[in-house]
Nucleic acid binder design. Sequence first.
RNA 1: GCGGAAUUGGUGAAGUGGUUAACACGCCGGAUUGUGGCUCCGGUAUGCGUGGGUUCGAUCCCCACAUUUCGCC
Length: 376
Amino acid sequence: MVMKLKYKLLKEEKDTKARLGQIETKYGTYNTPMFMPVGTLATVKTLSPEEVKEVKAGIILANTYHLWLRPGEDIVQKSGGLHKFMNYDGPILTDSGGFQVFSLASSKDISEEGVHFKNHLNGDSLFLTPEKSIEIQNKLDSDIAMSFDECPPASASYEYLKNSIERTLRWAKRGKDVHNNPNQALFGIVQGGPIKELRKYSAIETVKLDFDGYSIGGVANDGEDKDAMYKAIEYSTPYLPKDKIRYLMGVGEPIDIIEGVIRGIDIFDCVLPTRLARHGNALTKYGKINIKNSKYKEDFSPISKECDCYACQNYSKSYIKHLINCNETFGARLLSIHNIRFLIKLTEDLREAIKNDNILEYRDNFIKNYYGANHE
RNA sequence: GCGGAAUUGGUGAAGUGGUUAACACGCCGGAUUGUGGCUCCGGUAUGCGUGGGUUCGAUCCCCACAUUUCGCC
């Protein structure tokens, strides 16, 4: 069966740009706004595919760059594609490797043709091009492929950003021209830093290339402040077609997901819930908590009484603290399950708020709880 | 009983006759936004076994005592 993802816009919230939508894929139909857990190396770190389903995840993200290096796209292809390889029968989006080249590679040399860089594992010299990235993603057989883009630092100058956008557009076109997996959607990426006219230009020109969906990249980079991020979204979304998915790459924190949805974003991905988990942090309605704090030593209550996740249904803070303190992987797994579930539940709540046309009220209430002083 | 060695924070320990006693672990906090999983950044001994002495000054030198440890009887 050949089937490429379809997006349907169901409703726009009364006071904001928030959208309720539906994504139909070969691997099921899901509602947006949605949070996509990150599974870089064809695994959402510490979780089994069954656990990923149990937290009601839809699309998950895997990584072209990492899978190219190990085990190699040919092996994934021989196994029957990424879904079969990792035994995940939900939809998968692959990042293009653009971000990794710019965030992980030590020395890199960007030219019109592509990027020369040394990989992060053994320093081997590698060359990645837009065509190569798409070819790898075709073979991985993800449901959504991303264009190979340049992700410039937040500190980049106007001139640099302008040239970078032009090149990213040429790269997007080149990638689209070689894309040949009929089951796979291909998304374009809007760049432009925090600058209004560059975001507008990038969005308009990217849309002209006619992709299956559009993402906003280059946000939440090296200490960029939240206001700049929100502005970058506001400067981009007015030029994106309403009948296509909008994806804010690499975000994020609960408040950023809420603000993103309010500004018209449909899907998000972020390493935050799993990384925080491995470092002993849990997301809660009343803010982030550090489970290693001594005050949880004899706290036999769950992370959250309202949470329906496996960790909260069965284990106490005291126990999880003990596991994290002892560096037991089960602790990271329980916190990962909880944190991913927390963000997915957040998007479920946001969908309700859009239906009820009260998303601003929802946001204000969320902020009051999350950033309020000393709840316990 | 005789002789030797040792005694520094919660732990293992470095060190010097002269401003803030190294480092590691632990502990106490913090960070983390398209992932280089098990990371990074802070804080953590008003004190160097006890009591005397030498000295301008002692954790560092001397004496006694205590404790630990090794060897011998």
